[in-house]
Amino acid sequence: MFGFGDFWVAAAYLLCILSTALCVVYGLMHWNDDEEIPAAVHPPDENLDFEETI
C-alpha cells in the first residue's frame, strides 16, 4: 500500500495525517463552544487551613 512494505507502516503514515485532520476538524466544529466560566471558589491563601493527618 502506497509503496510501503507492510500494512502497519502504511496505517501509521495514514493515521498521522488522519489524526491531524481530526484535530483540525474538531477545532473548527467546536470553534465557539465554551464551558461555563467557573467562579473562583478558592479562599485566599492565607486562610487556607490544610490539615495534614497522614
Partner: peptide, 9 residues
C-alpha cells in the same frame, strides 16, 4: 478547542 488545530499540525 481552537488550539488543537495548530497543535496537531
Amino acid at each position: 478547542n481552537r488550539a488543537v488545530i495548530p497543535g496537531g499540525i
